[in-house]
């Protein structure tokens, strides 16, 4: 709060400069977010019978409802799994010596340079019917016919969590490093066990960052398109894939746009809800 007051104090004398400096950003956001979203909204209202016909169609279709629910459930699972792994990983990195830390962080940034498609496809030689895991299991005689490790919801969660792992790990690492080590040392010197230090001091300090990371992973995961398409074997129809089917393959702009707006509202509500539930002080106030 204090910082905001100072900065607005600085801005006061030269409001025009501030407007001028922010104008390109505002214009950029206007052109890349507001205008296209307005276009989608416009398309969604161009129903043939009445303006909301596309919405009625979308909400009356069991397939659409099913797809939205599946996407939400998988999004929640992916965000919890990814954040949990990233949390444990970040704890481990925190205790590494400086040089090893650089290597660990480098190792999670590296996959950013490989395309999503390739990262999804590279699971096939590992988990596929003729993949590494099945071949090992079959050669050891543990199984006789290959297991369906891929082309199912499990593979979609695994693949998406894998791709989103760095996106979750980086903010968590940053948050963990900001924790004042002296607080932990003080607790320890006062006789707190490691479990108590983690539960009563460390975790409360990193909880807000953990929650916002979970929410961010959820937001990205529910928009994922390539990974579910490759690893779901066409059997896991998620909202982005359905929108692609409607708009790209069939040219049904109206229902595709209506579905997009419905999803936007559902996701936004989910995110707002998560933030409320996860922030006790705000919950008490409201």
């Amino acid at each position: 709060m204090a910082r905001r007051q100072i900065s607005s104090g600085f801005d006061m004398p030269d409001n025009k400069a501030s407007v001028a400096l922010n104008a390109p950003l505002v214009l950029f956001l206007l052109l890349t977010i507001v205008v296209p979203l307005g276009g989608i909204f416009f398309f969604s209202l161009a129903g043939e019978a009445h303006p909301f016909a596309n919405y009625a169609d979308a909400l009356a279709s069991p397939a659409f409802v099913r797809v939205v629910v599946t996407t939400l459930i998988l999004g929640v699972i992916v965000s919890i799994v990814t954040t949990t792994f990233a949390f444990v990983f970040s704890l481990w990195v925190l205790r590494l010596p400086p040089r090893a830390k650089i290597i660990a962080v480098g190792a999670i940034i590296l996959p950013f340079f490989v395309s999503y498609l390739l990262r999804a496809l590279s699971w096939i030689p590992v988990l596929g019917f003729n993949g590494l895991v099945n071949r090992i299991l079959m050669s050891t005689g543990l199984i006789e016919t290959p297991l369906s490790l891929i082309y199912n919801p499990f593979a979609v969660v695994l693949g998406t969590a894998n791709v989103l792992f760095p996106i979750a790990a980086l903010p968590l690492l940053a948050a963990f490093h900001k924790v004042d080590q002296r607080l932990l040392a003080a607790a320890s010197s006062l006789g707190a066990s490691r479990a108590v230090i983690f539960r009563r001091i460390f975790f409360p300090l990193v909880a807000p960052a953990t929650l916002s990371t979970t929410v961010m992973v959820f937001a990205v995961a529910t928009g994922f398109y390539i990974t579910p398409s490759v690893l779901g074997g066409g059997k896991v129809l998620l909202a982005p894939n359905l929108i692609e089917l409607l708009i790209h393959r069939r040219g049904e702009w109206g229902t595709g746009a209506a579905l997009t707006i419905v999803l936007l509202v559902v996701y936004m509500s989910a995110i707002v809800l998560a933030r409320r539930l996860g922030n006790p002080s705000r919950r008490r106030r409201s």
């Binding site: 279709s61 069991p62 397939a63 659409f64 099913r66 797809v67 066409g234 059997k235 129809l237 359905l242 089917l245 409607l246």
Partner: peptide, 8 residues
């Protein structure tokens, strides 16, 4: 077909 696919 969309209904069929969503229930695969």
């Amino acid at each position: 077909w969309t209904e069929f696919r969503a229930a695969l």
